[in-house]
């Protein structure tokens, strides 16, 4: 399992919100722009890839205890959302790349859609 810090470095991501998660291990990835889908499918220690940047994304990430949310296509959360992410210990990672490219690069690093079976 790969550490979040390595993903941040390899994918050249900008860290906003809480940085305390960077040593966490990522078990799998989930990609969707629909909050309800993420609520249903993403799990603890997943990394969620989406272009959504509004405050509800932080709420979902916090609720599910995700390792991080990667926000794509250059979308940037507003200051209020970043402040909320900091206070709730949610790690937001920003990139100008598309969801497709980010998922591709994560896959190349060994992160898949389902956790590896032990």
């Amino acid at each position: 399992m790969i550490a979040l810090a390595e993903i941040v470095q390899k994918l050249n991501l900008e860290v906003v919100g809480s940085a305390e998660n960077l040593d966490r291990r990522v078990v799998a990835g989930y990609a969707s722009d629909l909050l309800s889908c993420a609520m249903n499918r993403a799990k603890k220690d997943y990394v969620w890839v989406t272009l959504q940047s509004h405050a509800n994304v932080v709420a979902v990430a916090s609720l599910l205890d995700l390792a991080a949310v990667i926000i794509t296509e250059g979308n940037r959360p507003d200051d209020e959302t970043i402040a909320r992410a900091e206070s709730e210990g949610v790690c937001l990672l920003l990139t100008p790349k598309t969801t497709f490219t980010v998922v591709g690069e994560l896959t190349a690093l060994g992160v898949r859609g389902e956790p590896e079976q032990p």
Partner: peptide, 21 residues
């Protein structure tokens, strides 16, 4: 049958390009 994450990953590995904005 797969999640969007899994399918993007598979297609990326197969050499598919991303539609960049």
């Amino acid at each position: 049958p797969y999640t969007m994450f899994e399918m993007c990953g598979r297609l990326y590995e197969a050499g598919m390009a991303s539609c960049d904005l």
